[in-house]
Write a protein that binds this DNA or RNA. Structure first.
Lengths: 134, 134
DNA sequence: TTAATACTTAAACCGCAGTTTAAGTCAAGG
DNA sequence: CCTTGACTTAAACTGCGGTTTAAGTATTAA
């Protein structure tokens, strides 16, 4: 019987749906604090599950691991979380808009390619670059 | 006086606005054929400029180097360019739409984060995941 | 002759977010 | 005692699109 309290890294991993290797990586990357150990093995408090879910949410919003570390640990201690999110989110939104513009122009280009009738790849590309054809 | 005919790799690079190393990389990657050499140095026909522009257009449309190689060299020889573009473009458009959806959901998440008032990061993330607000 | 300039190669490196591998430790169960 | 299974580490590997580096060659101008 295992009756050491706290969750093993495998149990945490299963609860949040990631691999144990990812959790070790987050620790190395400074996103998670090193937990106490039992026989050399990490023992986690249940709260770590919420923290990892928070990491996942931030990732869904497009933040990199470095940015998430900044969000968690590199703001002035007296800065409220809402202000932290807002400052990061404002920067990230600008990046997102750039990506959106890029994706949109790819899409336009591809839609034009779909209507292409050119006899050679070269002609075709020339036409695509300069949208003369409606 | 240099009167060997053909362009040097540096001249080609300058005309298309990329580094010589990129041209060598395209050759290695099978996008450009190895040109004849003079004193061991590559000598390009002016047509390579159009070919690299074509590569650039394909890149703008979101194709990877592997996909561009396929577009150029891995279709049945009797398949017209328009059909090649169209087949590739159809696949790529589906990928683009997936990206677009991802970017859009990032944006939504971030916009919600901007309006967040939560007192703790954990609460905030919980609220963001489940859009109860507004 | 010498120095500057442009080229040549193979191999290592970049960022990103982890994953995989090798080699080992530990506790429980049969 | 031995196997099984989950854990430990550091280091190397993944894919992508090139860039950088080290070491060497060739041409040109002064």
């Amino acid at each position: 019987m295992k009756q050491v309290d706290g969750l093993s890294i495998g149990e945490v991993a299963e609860r949040v749906g990631i691999r144990a290797s990812a959790i070790r990586f987050y620790e190395r990357a400074g996103l998670l604090e090193a937990p106490p150990r039992n026989n050399g093995q990490r023992r986690y408090d249940a709260a770590v599950v919420a923290k990892i879910r928070l990491i996942q949410t931030a990732q869904q919003a497009g933040f990199t691991v470095g940015e998430i570390r900044a969000l968690f640990y590199e703001f002035p201690v007296d800065m409220p979380p809402s202000a932290r999110w807002q400052q990061m989110a404002t920067h990230k939104l600008a990046e997102i808009d750039v990506m959106l513009a890029r994706i949109t122009s790819m899409k336009t280009l591809l839609e034009r390619a779909l209507r292409c009738e050119c006899p050679s790849l070269d002609d075709c590309a020339a036409g695509l670059d300069t949208p003369e054809s409606q």
